[in-house]
């Protein structure tokens, strides 16, 4: 795609060595943090493909942990993220996936355990230029790039739930850009992935969380 601005040529300001290994990895980490919704105390990270081959030399491990710690992609502390995590007493383990498990070459699985004992699983790929694609969240196969504010609503598959969620968003003047539904292997359980034109406030988030048949809400 042709450059639309001079700042696509001179820029972005970034932390090296490459946007797919730094900015993209930070983004996957920060989405995992949002999915957990609380501070983590334990992280198990599995690298696939070229992430597995070059994660040390590219600092992908540091970038991912920086994202888990809440840093953004241009934070100069990224290279110290592993030390910072260890100072905080966080337990972090890295694993290299066995050959044969093939996804996008720059893919990581993250299993997080929160301070409350809550556990989440996320699989994300860095697809270039700092962009990411999240392909799994807990038991759900998804396709989330989180370029715009995204809400994921886990709910019991009953008539009326989608309408109620959309109603709350509409009443608060939030436009839905895209909505997808995905099921899990457990019967009657579904996930709405809603991309919106702007982010929801804490208040709106709380209202949606309190709706009948809504079991959990994740905001990215």
């Amino acid at each position: 795609m042709p450059a639309r601005s001079v700042f696509e040529i001179i820029g972005p300001v970034m932390i090296g060595p490459s946007s797919s290994h730094t900015a993209g990895a930070v983004r996957i980490g920060s989405i995992a943090r949002a999915v957990l919704g609380e501070d983590f105390r334990r992280a198990e990270i599995t690298f696939y493909g070229s992430f597995a081959k070059t994660y040390k030399g590219h600092g992908t491990d540091r970038a991912l942990v920086a994202g888990l710690l809440g840093m953004s992609g241009d934070d100069s502390r990224i290279r110290d993220a592993l030390n910072i995590a260890s100072t905080l007493g966080l337990e972090i383990r890295f694993r290299i996936a066995a050959e044969g498990e093939e996804f996008h070459p720059n893919t990581a699985d993250i299993e997080l355990t929160g301070v409350s004992g809550k556990r989440v699983f996320l699989r994300g790929s860095s697809v270039g230029g700092g962009n990411v694609l999240i392909t799994r969240i807990n038991q759900y196969e998804v396709s989330v790039c989180a370029k715009s504010p995204t809400l994921m609503v886990e709910h019991v598959d009953r008539p009326g739930v989608i309408g109620r969620v959309a109603g709350v968003l509409g009443n608060n003047g939030i436009n839905i850009a895209e909505m997808r539904l995905t099921g899990s292997n457990r019967e009657g359980e579904k996930l709405m992935v809603i991309e919106m034109d702007r982010a929801v406030s804490d208040e709106v988030l709380e209202t949606i969380t309190g709706l009948p048949d809504v079991t959990a809400v994740i905001r990215i």
Binding site: I9, I10, G11, P12, V13, M14, I15, G16, P17, S18, S19, T22, G59, R62, A63, D74, S76, I78, R79
Partner: peptide
Amino acid sequence: VVNASQGRIVAAPTAGSCGIL
């Protein structure tokens, strides 16, 4: 090298070629 050590740079036009300009 700043780029290769996870330092802060401006891509120009890319991170791999950020030193020249």
